[in-house]
Every structure is written in C-alpha cells, then in structure tokens.
C-alpha cells in the first residue's frame, strides 16, 4: 500500500505537466536542438517512411540501433519512453495472442517481430525529432517549408497555452476531489479507487472547455492588435522571422553521417 501511494504521488497531474514542458522546452542544450529544423525534417522524412518498405531484418535492426543512439542523445523524458514501450508491447503482445488464438503458431512470431521493429524505428525517429525541437523551432521550420503562417503559429501558441490548460485542469480536478467523496473501500485490485479517479479525470474536461472558450476572446483580440493578421499576409514579415534560420556545418555533417550509415547498412546486408 505504501508503495502504491508513492507511485500515485509520482504520477500526479503536476508531474505530467512538468514532464510535458520539459519535453517541449527543457532540452535546448542537446545536439539535435542546435540543428536547423529543415535538417531534422529531411532526416525524419527518410527514417519515418522507409522502414515501411524494408523487409530485411538486419537493415531494420541496424536502423533501430541508430535510433536508439539518437534517442539516448536526445535525452527523452522517461514518461514518454514509458508510454511508448507500453504501446509497443501492448500492440505486439495483443497481436501475438490473437494470432495464437486463431490457429497461428510460433512462426507468426517472426513477422510480428519485424513489424514491431519497424514501428520502433519510426516511433523513435519521431520522438528524437519532435522532442528535440522546441515549438518555436518547429513552427519556424514549418513556415520555412511553406506551411501557412496560421498553422505554424497555432503550434507555437498551443504550446504556450499548454501549461495554463494543464494547470486549469488540475484545479478543476482538485475541486472535484475536495467536494466529492472517495469510495470507502478500495475494492478488488483497487478497482473502486481507480474507477473513481478515472471518472474524475474525464469529468474535469467539461468545465475546462468552457473556461478556455472564455479566455480565447481576449487572446484573439490581442492577436488582431498585435498585427498577426498583417504578418500572415505580408511575405516580408516571414522573411524577417526566418532570418535566423541557417543551415550550418553541423547540419550537413549530421545528414552526411546518417546517409553514410544507411549506405553501409545496405551494402553490408543486402
């Protein structure tokens, strides 16, 4: 029980908020954060897509190794890794059980294994790229490759609002706790306690939506007076905004190194 409580303390809404913010903004000192967003887009467009078309397990494993290294250097938060592994294990595991149930045999294991490796490569590549760019970099990068200003701005703004929203959610959640009644008995396997919290977690969204809608009015007016509409319609503003984006030596080096590694994989195992 003592253990359970400790675990609950760790998994508080507050903790989730800190992890999210840390993932979004907290790692500006890692290598990937210093790259130009375009480099990361190019890199991702290879490692995020090609694994689907590869069936050679050695090449896939080689890529996975590379991804593990990049993920390690991107200093991804443990929470994200936990969610990812739960997802992968859950999916692979359930597919395996279903396959066995419907008359498959252990030979199904191999294709499932390949699928899982593919998924891992893609997920780790996504995590590396999107967790190392902070939202401003991401939004500027998208703007540079021709995504409309409104879209790229929404991403940066969404992140700006994230902590406020989580905080608001947290307050509402706590209000529910302070006025509600927790079940007297925990139930088998904590089932009552868990269902109580799940119910609160869902119900807390409803008040949140309403109060957010109210806030948005000031924001929209402020954006109007701060010239965001003007900015979206004038190309010179875009130029001004992206002045600082530059491909540097380390961008090219990183791309070349990745390319060489992939070539090596193919030459060796194909």
């Amino acid at each position: 029980m003592e253990y359970g409580r400790k675990w609950m303390d760790k998994l508080s809404v507050e903790q989730v908020k800190i992890e999210l913010l840390h993932t979004a903004y907290g790692n500006s000192d890692i290598f990937f954060a210093k790259l130009d967003p375009r480099t990361l887009f190019i890199w991702y467009s290879y490692f995020g897509i090609t694994p689907w078309f590869l069936h050679n397990e050695y090449i896939l494993l080689g890529m996975l190794l590379f991804m593990l290294v990049t993920t390690y250097f991107a200093k991804i938060s443990p929470l994200i890794m936990l969610i990812l592994s739960l997802g992968l294990l859950g999916q692979g595991g359930s597919l395996l059980i279903i396959a066995l149930f419907f008359g498959g045999n252990w030979a199904t294991l191999m294709p499932l294994f390949i699928l899982t490796v593919k998924l891992m490569v893609i997920s780790l590549a996504s995590i590396t790229v999107f967790c190392s760019m902070n939202p401003t970099q991401l939004s500027n990068g998208l703007l540079k490759i021709g995504v409309p200003g409104q879209v790229s701005f929404s991403i940066a703004y969404g992140y700006r609002m994230l902590p406020t929203l989580v905080e608001e959610y947290h307050h509402v959640f706590q209000s529910f706790r302070l006025r509600g009644k927790a079940p007297e008995k925990r139930g088998f396997l904590y089932i009552r306690t868990i269902s109580y919290f799940v119910k609160l977690a869902v119900m807390s969204f409803y008040p949140l939506l309403l109060s957010t809608a109210k806030r948005a009015r000031t924001t929209v007016e402020a954006l109007e007076t701060k010239g965001s509409m003007y900015g979206f319609n004038h190309p010179e503003v875009k130029k001004l905004k992206l002045k600082t984006l530059k491909m540097k030596k380390r961008d090219y080096l990183f791309l070349i190194a990745s390319f060489l590694y992939v070539v090596l994989l193919f030459v060796y195992f194909y």
Binding site: P135, T219, E221, T225, E236, K241
Partner: peptide
C-alpha cells in the same frame, strides 16, 4: 493605441518573454 486588458494573461501569446515583447513589431514587419 496600446491596450492592456483586465485579463492581461490571455494577451501574452508567445512562450518566452522577449519573443512576446517583440511579437507586435515583428508581425508588422
């Protein structure tokens, strides 16, 4: 004309301090 709202927190649109302070001049080019 510059207007500071009563619920001024909602008129801050950028994540970092300097970014927000220079948001308007940037978007007016």
């Amino acid at each position: 004309v510059g207007y500071v709202y009563q619920d001024f927190e909602n008129q801050i649109v950028s994540p970092r301090v300097l970014e927000d302070a220079s948001f308007a001049p940037l978007h007016f080019g």
